[in-house]
């Protein structure tokens, strides 16, 4: 039978363990729904205007001092396959042949979510959503678990796998360091000859997007992609065809990604609080008046 002193020690051991892990859940519980910073900036992308010149790719490459690409930026053979962002290209333009309609181009880059999945899945808090609206990355703490790449609903973050000593997550940061911080639009927006992208306060862009749809309902599908997707994104899209036809996830959830794990995280403090007493209690019930305890050791002192 258990000694009372041992029992208390046991409880203490559990308590210390519980306390050391309890920190894991506090913030998760406190996180409510976040509407976004009031003055967060955004970009409205009008897919109907893009002609696939790829000057945004070139501007990004130059601004972010990325390595020279294998093919020149005016080479249109890249459109033969669907590309994604990599550690050497933070934005890419893809071509979509839509049935019965003209060809559409779509620029891909980080959408700068209001409640980013990369941020909420990161166990060293390497990501920050700035008040200007950018989702930036702190390279100095990144361990390289790549959970952000798993979590991003748009498959944006890439990783410099080829670096043996300092591999890092590479993604669009809204030109935060060089431009956004000073209130200037990102390089890709500024260079665009077609004015595909409109830079402004996100709140204003939501209105602008809906105004454009209303002014020309025959041209646009009645949806502002990014207004609600995964809790809202800073980059939003207008299109003349269903978003699924230009390679976007048309069935994306409206709740932020962190909502999917909140139930589980809420369960954590309950387990920490209830299990010690529950199982120590079961122990007392299961072993009362039973003296079946044998030591693993054999020999003459048993």
């Amino acid at each position: 039978m258990i000694e009372r002193r041992d029992f208390l020690k046991g409880c203490l051991a559990c308590g210390v363990t519980a306390a050391s892990i309890g920190v894991a859940s506090n913030d998760a519980l406190a996180a409510g729904s976040f509407e976004g910073y009031p003055d967060a900036m955004g970009v409205l992308v009008d897919l109907t205007r893009c002609v696939g010149c790829r000057s945004c790719e070139a501007a990004c490459n130059n601004e972010q001092k990325l390595p020279e690409p294998d093919l020149r930026f005016d080479d249109t053979s890249v459109f033969e396959e669907k590309r994604r962002t990599t550690d050497k290209a933070y934005t890419v333009v893809n071509k979509y042949q839509v049935a019965n309609k003209e060809t559409l181009f779509r620029k891909i880059q980080c959408n700068h979510c209001t409640e980013p999945a990369c941020l909420s899945s990161c166990f060293v808090n390497a990501y920050t959503k700035t008040k200007e609206g950018a989702v930036i990355y702190k390279a100095s703490v990144c361990v390289g678990c790549r959970n952000c790449m798993i979590a991003c609903p748009f498959n944006i973050p890439a990783y410099s796998y080829s670096s043996p000593l300092k591999p890092l997550v590479k993604k669009c940061i809204f030109c935060y360091d060089t431009r956004l911080k000073e209130g200037r639009p990102p390089a890709c927006v500024e260079i665009c000859p077609q004015q595909v992208m409109t830079f402004g306060r996100r709140a204003d862009l939501v209105k602008l997007g809906h105004d454009r749809i209303q002014a020309n309902p025959a041209k646009y599908v009645d949806k502002l992609y990014g207004e609600k997707a995964v809790g809202g994104t800073s980059w939003m899209y207008l299109s003349s065809v269903d978003f699924g036809q230009v390679g976007m996830d048309a069935h994306i959830q409206n709740e932020p990604i962190i909502a999917n794990v909140k139930d589980f995280l809420g369960f954590v403090p309950m387990v920490l609080a209830i299990w010690p007493a529950l199982f120590t209690g079961i122990h007392l019930l299961a072993t009362k008046n039973k003296d079946g305890h044998h030591d693993h050791e054999g020999g003459d002192h048993q």
Binding site: C122, N125, V141, V143, C145, K166
Partner: peptide, 30 residues
């Protein structure tokens, strides 16, 4: 891990307590 020498970071350098992986890291260590 990309930078395995940073394995203790979630414990001592920078906490991301709202992440499920943070919980996994602490639990596996404990």
């Amino acid at each position: 891990l990309g930078q395995p020498w940073r394995l203790p970071y979630p414990m001592i350098v920078s906490w991301g307590p709202e992440a499920v992986l943070f919980l996994v890291a602490w639990h596996v260590a404990t």
